[in-house]
Simulated scan of single mutants.
Amino acid sequence: MKALIAVFTVAMLTVNGSQAQKIWTEADPNYTVDNLKRTRDELIRETENLSDAQWHFHEAPDRWSIAEVVEHLALWEIIWAREISMGNRSTPRPDLIATSSPDSYYHDFIMENKAHVSPDFSRPTGFIQGKNNLIFFTRLRNQAIGFADTTQADMRVQFELTATKYPRNMHQVYIYQWGHVDRHMRQIRKIKAHPNYPKETATN
């Protein structure tokens, strides 16, 4: 009986020790939530007063309008949420930390100037009108912020793509999530700088 108690005590100390060694420290969720909020707010400021003509202006027939860019961002919010959910259901893999790519790899990739090709499942439909795209995005982003702000999961040991050469942890998925908005903010500002972009804004 004493031996059993001793084993149980060691096990509890091990569990408590692993909790004390949580790798996703307080600075990480703060950084994540701050950037999720920052990019949400910047997108709102950039688009909330657009007129219908401004929302749906195309630089060229094959270029997305601002409405389509924001719809694309909203679709990716759904995809990021699924990745976070699936990653958190997996077995923690702290052993992958030493060999996985650093955070800077993901930030540099999402912010590079090179054009990225959107997969078919995240291409905008164009069916959503104007500001409804912003409402769509904002509701999803607020859900993401709420989860990131309250989760007790250690996002640096929860990985996806573990069978590949490039597994990434959930903190790095968050870098993609908020960085994706930063990336497309450049696109929105480019659209607004076009000489034929409508000048009138929405009237309240």
Rank of each mutant, 00 (worst) to 15 (best):
11 A>F: 14
14 T>A: 15
16 N>W: 10
17 G>Q: 09
20 A>M: 11
21 Q>V: 03
21 Q>Y: 12
31 Y>K: 13
36 L>E: 02
37 K>C: 02
37 K>E: 09
38 R>P: 03
40 R>V: 02
44 I>F: 09
50 L>F: 11
54 Q>F: 01
58 H>C: 03
61 P>Y: 03
66 I>R: 04
68 E>A: 00
69 V>M: 00
69 V>S: 00
69 V>H: 01
70 V>L: 01
72 H>P: 00
73 L>T: 03
76 W>R: 12
78 I>Q: 15
79 I>C: 09
80 W>M: 14
82 R>C: 07
84 I>G: 08
84 I>H: 11
92 P>Q: 10
92 P>W: 13
99 T>F: 12
102 P>E: 05
103 D>G: 02
107 H>C: 00
114 K>E: 08
115 A>L: 12
117 V>P: 00
117 V>Y: 06
125 T>R: 08
125 T>V: 03
126 G>H: 05
130 G>I: 03
133 N>V: 07
135 I>G: 05
135 I>Q: 08
135 I>A: 11
135 I>K: 12
138 T>A: 07
142 N>T: 07
145 I>A: 08
146 G>P: 03
150 T>D: 07
153 A>Q: 04
164 T>Y: 07
167 P>N: 06
169 N>K: 09
172 Q>D: 08
178 W>G: 10
180 H>R: 06
183 R>I: 06
185 M>N: 10
187 Q>L: 08
192 K>M: 14
192 K>F: 02
196 N>E: 09
198 P>T: 05
201 T>E: 14
204 N>Y: 11
